[in-house]
Every structure is written in structure tokens, then in C-alpha cells.
């Protein structure tokens, strides 16, 4: 009899605990309702991509020496380099260059290995099109200047979370030159260069 009562009591206790946890969860959800939306109203506001953003690849036709390093380092040998050998100047003559962004994974290996820096990453990411073949960019399309969020008069550029001042969560209505949290890369570099001579002395 007592054992049964204990069972019932434990069960009731567990149910009460479950109810308590549901109440806690509800209070969390309810609390979230009073917070401001953190969403970016996309077509009207856009986040500024970070410095190392890997967007659409830019290609400079005149710098290219048709070495095909980009093809070799590409995981899927994607860039198409069309050249022929000019016997008079004994140089490769580039005719066409194209990358299909429907297949590209934006790993950035080609940019990394290009010996003449004719490939570079841009911050352009709006590549949507009605036909996937339109994503196959030829050298003209690859050579276009990238779209910049900050230069579009229709768009309010917003900083990403890591670029906001310390303690600020909302990128709206920031003062124009608010400094972001932490040190800038050039400051870190400067500090390192100042510290470097000392270290070399002590080590030698």
C-alpha cells in the first residue's frame, strides 16, 4: 500500500516538474517576444560582406598567362582556359576563359595559386538567374566590376555582428565611424612589429 502511494507521489512530483519546465520554456519564449527583431530587411538592407568573403571570382584577362594553374588546383578542374601557342612570340595567346558558378564551390584555390594575381575574390553573392547556364561566366562577365553594397543608393548597408562596437547588437542607426570591438588587423601588425626587434635581441 505504502509502495503504491509512493509510486503515485513520485509520479505526481514528476508531472509537476514537467509542468514547471514547460512553464520555464514558455517564459523564455515570452521573453523573446519583447526583444527587437534582429533580421535584415534584405532587398532594402544588406550586410556588408567581411574582408575575406569569397564571392563571385573576378578575372583580369590581360594579366592571365594561360598557365592553367587554376585548373590544376581546382577540385573539379572547373576553369576553362582556351589558348593557342603563338610560334612567333613563343608565348601562349589566351582566347577565352570561363568559370561556371553553378558548379564552383568558391573554395578560392585558384585565387590562391594564380601566379599573376589575375584572379581575385569579390564580395558579390547575388548570382541567382533563371537558367543555370547563365551562371557560366565567360571572360567578359568575369571581368565586370563587382557590385558593392556600400555604393548602392537603394540599399542601407549594415555591418555584420563582428564589426559592431563592443556591446552593440543592433546594426541600425550606428554613428558613421563607430569603431568595432577589438583591435584592427593593422594595429595588431604594428604591435607585432614593435615587439619583434626586442624578441630577436633576446633570442640571439
Amino acid at each position: 500500500m505504502l509502495g503504491f502511494l509512493k509510486q503515485v507521489g513520485d509520479y505526481a512530483k514528476e508531472s509537476l516538474q514537467a509542468a514547471k519546465y514547460i512553464g520555464q520554456g514558455l517564459s523564455v519564449t515570452f521573453d523573446h517576444m519583447s526583444r527587437r527583431p534582429i533580421t535584415v530587411q534584405y532587398p532594402y538592407e544588406k550586410l556588408i560582406p567581411s574582408e575575406r568573403f569569397r564571392g563571385r571570382i573576378h578575372f583580369e584577362f590581360d594579366k592571365c598567362i594561360s598557365c592553367e594553374v587554376c585548373v590544376r588546383v581546382c577540385p573539379i578542374n572547373l576553369p576553362v582556359v582556351d589558348w593557342d601557342f603563338d610560334k612567333t612570340t613563343k608565348k601562349k595567346n589566351l582566347k577565352h576563359y570561363s568559370i561556371d558558378f553553378g558548379v564552383c564551390i568558391f573554395c578560392g584555390n585558384c585565387v590562391e595559386y594564380c601566379p599573376t594575381n589575375c584572379l581575385s575574390m569579390t564580395e558579390e553573392y547575388e548570382l541567382a538567374s533563371y537558367d543555370r547556364h547563365e551562371l557560366n561566366y565567360d571572360n567578359v562577365a568575369l571581368g565586370r566590376l563587382p557590385y558593392k553594397v556600400t555604393q548602392d543608393p537603394m540599399v542601407t548597408p549594415l555591418r555584420e555582428l563582428a564589426y559592431l562596437p563592443k556591446g552593440v547588437m543592433d546594426p541600425h542607426d550606428l554613428p558613421p565611424n563607430a569603431r568595432r570591438a577589438g583591435q584592427m588587423p593593422q594595429e595588431i601588425l604594428e604591435a607585432a612589429q614593435k615587439a619583434a626587434p626586442k624578441e630577436t635581441k633576446t633570442e640571439s
Binding site: T29, F30, H32, M33, R35, R36, P37, I38, T39, Q41
Partner: peptide
Amino acid sequence: KISAAAQQRI
């Protein structure tokens, strides 16, 4: 609207 508010959306 309530779902959006609970998820900090609009």
C-alpha cells in the same frame, strides 16, 4: 506575427 516575434523576426 506571434511566431515572428518569438523568433525575433518581423
